[in-house]
């Protein structure tokens, strides 16, 4: 009875759970001996945190009814600076303490640039009234263009060894460092969304920004802050990507933009705003990563099979959800009206 109640209230979560189970069962049957090994799960734990963090960041944007397409390009731009700085200042033979200080500064540089980038996005959207898709696509082109111009399209290397070592270390002897960072960020974001005034406001803004403004709340400030948070959290993802790649480049992770949006949509967090639950996000992330890793276990399949399955999965979810009560993916009339009137 209790379960039935839960299932009714959380139809979407249940659907994702069923999907996760289906994916697990499928790969257990076909590649059980490979799937249920420590190596397989370690591999997954190393892979997903970088785009997992980006997804987590962009989630804030989606909840407020905005969208960010610039996060990967911004992250690349920021890390190019940071890697250059670190490469220049942590010369071989420098003391550990010095290298550590350089790394911390490098991370701070990345985050500072991300903060500025997020702020610009926010200002373009709120103060100038540019539709968020457009503003952030344009900024994506700008950041990527700048990165290309500064690096002449080359890979930026010379990271201190310590940086990549940290990236591959294990916390408490078993927890991969990227996963550790992801878990901390996830808990932090979940707490922010659930238990802060800011978290309450972003859901309300995503549903009807005008009503929130008319309640005496500075919505522009909240939205700008949201773009900043998005940029910062996904910037952490970029930092992890840099440690995996041991370098930075203008076009690293370019497929992540679409993947992140796909995960969010799969999790029922739509750019329409005001929707979505954080646990669903985790489920969607895990599903996507298991598919990616599962596909890898078939020697005959290339990685694009994962893309095939992801696409199919998203479409199935889209169509299935039209049968659920609420039909969250349907074109929303009120939203459309709002857009027209704000044009």
């Amino acid at each position: 009875m209790k379960f039935k109640n839960f299932a009714n209230k959380n139809q979407y979560t249940v659907m994702l759970l069923v999907m996760l189970a289906a994916v697990l069962v499928f790969f257990s049957i076909t590649r059980g001996s490979l799937l249920w090994t420590g190596d397989a799960w370690y591999g997954m734990a190393m892979q997903f945190p970088e785009y997992g963090l980006m997804t987590l960041g962009v989630m804030f944007c989606f909840i407020t009814g905005n969208i960010d397409m610039s996060f990967v390009a911004l992250g690349n731009f920021a890390t190019i600076f940071a890697v250059r700085y670190m490469a220049a200042n942590a010369a071989e033979g420098a003391s550990d303490g010095h290298v550590r200080a350089v790394i911390v500064t490098g991370i701070l540089i990345t985050l500072l640039i991300c903060l500025i980038g997020g702020f610009i996005n926010g200002v373009l959207v709120t103060k100038l009234g540019i539709p968020p898709v457009m503003a952030t696509i344009a900024m994506q082109l700008v950041w990527q263009g700048l990165s290309t111009a500064l690096t002449q399209g080359n890979t930026v290397t010379g990271l201190p060894a310590m940086y990549t070592e940290i990236g591959h270390s294990k916390m408490f002897g078993f927890l991969p460092f990227p996963l550790f960072i992801f878990i901390i960020a996830f808990i932090l974001c979940a707490l922010i969304v659930r238990y802060t005034v800011y978290g309450e406001m972003i859901y309300m803004i995503g549903t009807n920004v005008k009503a929130v403004r008319y309640s005496g709340i500075n919505t522009d400030r909240v939205v700008i802050l949201t773009f900043v948070i998005t940029a910062l959290v996904s910037g952490v993802g970029s930092l992890i990507m840099v440690s995996t790649m041991a370098s930075a480049k203008a076009d690293y992770g370019s497929s992540y933009v679409m993947r992140v949006i796909l995960i969010l949509v799969l999790a029922g967090i739509l750019p329409d705003g005001g929707m979505g639950k954080i646990p669903d996000l985790l489920l969607a992330l895990v599903i996507i990563q298991i598919i990616a890793s599962g596909v890898n276990m078939f020697a005959s399949l290339n990685t694009y099979y994962a893309s095939l399955i992801w696409g199919a999965l998203l479409l199935i979810v889209l169509i299935a959800s039209t049968k659920l009560s609420g039909g969250i993916f349907k074109i929303r009339d009120d939203k459309k009206k709002k857009q027209v009137s704000s044009q």
């Binding site: 679409m258 095939l308 479409l315």
Partner: peptide
Amino acid sequence: KLNTMIVTLGTQTFFTG
């Protein structure tokens, strides 16, 4: 009657696959 951006994001991924 679904949001076209989301549908075509799905089909884009699918077709690339």
